[in-house]
């Protein structure tokens, strides 16, 4: 399953993040964070890739702008963005 249209979810408030999705043939994930290290950004990217795989997504460009979100929040925002992007 591929993302068929641009979508987003979340906010730039503290403890939240913005997830932006765009159609793409393969998977590409980029994370930036205002509050964490580059190591943590890599962890976010790995988490996003794992969740995309779980959701059966094989094509998407994902950009994450993190503002100190918990992993469970990242998962929730990604789930929302995916459902908005495949409608």
């Amino acid at each position: 399953m591929k993302i068929s249209k641009k979508s987003s979810a979340g906010s730039l408030e503290s403890s939240d993040l913005m997830v932006y999705l765009e159609p793409m043939d393969t998977i590409k994930v980029e994370a930036v964070s205002s509050v964490s290290t580059s190591q943590h950004q890599k962890e976010i990217e790995a988490l996003v890739k794992k969740e995309l795989k779980k959701a059966g997504i094989t094509g998407a460009y994902v950009k994450v702008q993190d503002n100190g979100a918990l992993n469970l929040t990242i998962k929730a925002r990604l789930k929302t963005a995916i459902s908005r992007g495949i409608e």
């Binding site: 469970l72 929040t73 929302t80």
Partner: peptide, 15 residues
């Protein structure tokens, strides 16, 4: 509504 539902469900499940 969809975003809040996903968020609350994850908070209850994992927090």
């Amino acid at each position: 509504k969809d975003a809040a539902r996903d968020l609350i469900a994850n908070m209850i499940r994992f927090r």
